[in-house]
Design a protein around this nucleic acid. Structure first.
Lengths: 229, 229
DNA sequence: GTATGCATGAAACAAACGTATGAAATTTTG
DNA sequence: CAAAATTTCATACGTTTGTTTCATGCATAC
């Protein structure tokens, strides 16, 4: 095998097992959660020694934090970058709501760092980051998301005139619930038997899911503000 | 203390500890999940003996199943009952989408079996039931939800003419994600510090949350069908 | 070539886990 | 009231958990 096919980091013996541990933990965490995965499963999947995790990361929780951090930070950066590009493009004109939502949704669903199977695990991980109950991980994810939320809130407020900021907060909350549950369902569509319940349901391709999400979210955000306060 | 304040079941010594175990497990499961709760925590909270769980339920997983079943079945029954009542009321006329969504959402948010604190735990439990990875619990929840989904799918299809069944499936998926994530956020609103991020966000009362959810969902379900398939 | 620093290896650690056991206590039954 | 059935109790069992230890391998640097 040509060494040029290998990324520099995976050739570096200094970091090889460290990356292997991150990769293995990513897959297992995305499927069974942090608590549902033992360090012995991880080191077996990474073909490493039992002491490897504690040597390279100190503790299992610290490994978990790095696993999530490695993937979530780039997604959020990509979101902001896309919003930046959109706003630079249109100048002082108003952005369409669907454009903003595309910048928010697409980076989470098109996380293609490596192979196809890994891509699913990556998305699963991102989706799971919202429901992970590990305190440190939770804190990190929320903190990481702060800038993203701030930027997109402002952009959406401009695109949906007359939407009270308080309503925006709750609608963004609904929106994220829809995004992550939709993503989870999409990822495990083939494993789940909805045949009996939803015989007509088909699994759209990635683009189809994105479009369905965006149109649902755009409509939800544009809904008339309920009078009851 | 007057015994009339106690429910009949909690006076029955035959079932007292059994119910105490269910209550304690409900609270702990709703906060930390099944895996995140040990049998020793449960029996301590229920003021029972270590062997009590295995004596009354056989195994911890079996207890978990009963904990979820006890709460989720009534909610789903209430949903169907409300839809029945609505359809009986309007006869052959069409139901408004908001009415249908009210019947779907309200039972999950107005689960008032007992005291106020417990009510929150109950809703937390319902919301968590969707993300529990315990196989048996998952299977039960999905199976229990089948009739509900079937009935509401049909009703919504009538209220939103021209919506392809396949699109309905995904929009219902988004809808449930919004419902449960919104509910979780609402329940732990005071514990979470969004002050920095969303200084304008306020916690609406239960009715306010329901109204916001319904208007968001109704708009999302009524969104134009995206052309990309 | 030998010494130094880092990475791995196999084994053992204490603690926590769910569960099982058998004797005491309690309630129910005749 | 005594016998039988049921529930509680303290205790122990066998696993599995995350982490630690220390000896071994193996590079690079002197």
């Amino acid at each position: 095998m040509s060494t040029s096919l290998l990324s520099p980091v995976s050739r570096d013996p200094h970091l090889a097992t460290r990356v292997a541990l991150l990769d293995a933990a990513e897959r297992l965490f995305s499927q069974n959660g942090i608590e549902g995965t033992s360090v012995r499963e991880i080191i077996k999947a990474a073909d490493a020694n039992l002491g490897a995790i504690n040597y390279h990361f100190g503790t299992k929780d610290r490994l978990a934090l790095e696993v999530f951090a490695r993937r979530i930070a780039p997604v959020n950066r990509e979101r902001v970058a896309r919003l930046d590009a959109l706003e630079a493009e249109v100048g002082r004109r108003k952005l369409k709501l669907e454009q903003i939502l595309d910048a928010l949704v697409r980076p989470a669903l098109e996380a293609e760092g490596r192979g196809a199977k890994n891509c699913d695990d990556l998305m699963r991980l991102i989706s799971r980051s919202f429901q992970e109950q590990n305190t440190e991980v939770k804190k990190f994810v929320e903190q990481q998301f702060a800038e993203v939320a701030h930027r997109f809130d402002a952009a959406i407020l401009r695109a949906v005139p007359g939407l009270p900021p308080d309503d925006l907060f709750w609608r963004m909350c609904f929106l994220h619930g829809a995004l992550h549950h939709g993503l989870q369902t999409w990822l495990q569509f083939d494993q789940t038997p909805h045949a009996m319940l939803h015989p007509d349901a088909i699994k759209p391709d990635r683009e189809g899911l994105i479009q369905r999400l965006i149109s649902f979210m755009a409509a939800g955000l544009s809904a008339p503000v309920s009078k009851a306060r």
